[in-house]
Design a protein around this nucleic acid. Structure first.
Lengths: 100, 100
DNA sequence: CGGTATCCACGACGATACTG
DNA sequence: CAGTATCGTCGTGGATACCG
């Protein structure tokens, strides 16, 4: 449990993973889809995910430089957990406000 | 997702919830089962969980004073998520060390 | 474009001592 | 037994400026 939880640790981690679940993306694309995230924090998250081998990065040569971040097999293993997280969130918001 | 994740936020939260999944417990019982947790942190966690209405507390009169913490209906709604966290943790540890 | 370097603020965590 | 009070440390998150 601690292992799975630590894989999601950090404020933007689940959102970054969610974006990558849609398919590979570049640094800038991720910034565009998560407008509030600072470059440092996005880099922090991606590095942490790379270190855990949940995400891999490919550097595409050319100009301008492009990168491509994508989920690894292990990273895709998190999908059911994200789904369950979403489902539980919905259920909690219903129980918390039964009348609304 | 943020809601469900924030419900589990904090180093000991999942462990406290796990203990309460087994049934009601007193403050001291929880301390006994989580020997490393300090009284302040346990109180912090319980208060946070109470505020979110995931846990309720009953004060039993008499001497010495006894309390009984238990999960609310909303708290029990977290069980599948904890199970999924455990399952995903196991899966990650397998993918991370396929040969072992 | 794709990051790194710096610096700061804030809150979580934890140890310890104490109270009702 | 069941907590609260106090204090210190450390990590995380974030803004901003800059580099290859």
């Amino acid at each position: 449990m601690e292992l799975a939880l630590s894989a999601l640790a950090g404020r933007w981690t689940t959102l970054v993973l969610r974006e990558l679940m849609h398919g590979p993306a570049s640094f800038g694309e991720l910034r565009g889809r998560l407008p509030e995230i600072s470059p440092k924090v996005l880099a922090d998250r991606l590095h942490a995910l790379e270190e855990r081998e949940l995400v891999s990065c490919e550097r595409l040569r050319g100009f301008p430089v492009r990168t491509s971040y994508r989920l690894t097999v292990a990273g895709r293993a998190l999908r059911p957990l994200l789904v369950e997280l979403y489902r539980t969130g919905v259920e909690l918001s219903r129980t918390a406000a039964p009348g609304t």
